[in-house]
């Protein structure tokens, strides 16, 4: 039995769904950021599977760029969390309402 493209696509769809659920249901901002990383990761899995099945390197170059952007996003996001934590002393998303009023 050969593992084919469909299995990888199904797995990455499941992982992406879990990332979305984590982003929507958890209230800790750091865990929400981690869910975003999970989503980016599942998209990378899709890209690599498709690129390998088509024999085209462009998808893997795109994965490389996605990883760089994910690193930049994580750095800036965590810096924002630190800055907000200094003011509000919480990372609960329901208690952070800086734009209200």
């Amino acid at each position: 039995m050969e593992i084919t493209l469909n299995w990888y696509l199904t797995l990455s769809a499941l992982l992406f769904t879990m990332g979305v659920l984590g982003f929507l249901f958890r209230r800790n901002v750091i865990i929400m950021l981690m869910s975003i990383e999970l989503m980016l990761n599942s998209v990378n899995l899709t890209l690599v599977a498709l690129s390998q099945s088509m024999g085209d390197s462009a998808g893997q170059v795109l994965v490389f760029f996605v990883m760089s952007v994910a690193a930049a996003e994580a750095a800036v996001g965590l810096a924002l969390i630190i800055a907000i934590f200094r003011n509000k002393l919480t990372v609960d998303i329901t208690k952070i309402n800086l734009f209200k009023y």
């Binding site: 797995l11 499941l14 992982l15 879990m18 990332g19 249901f25 958890r26 865990i31 869910s35 999970l38």
Partner: peptide, 8 residues
Amino acid sequence: LTAALGML
């Protein structure tokens, strides 16, 4: 999949 669930 289990690790993703554990994270959630």
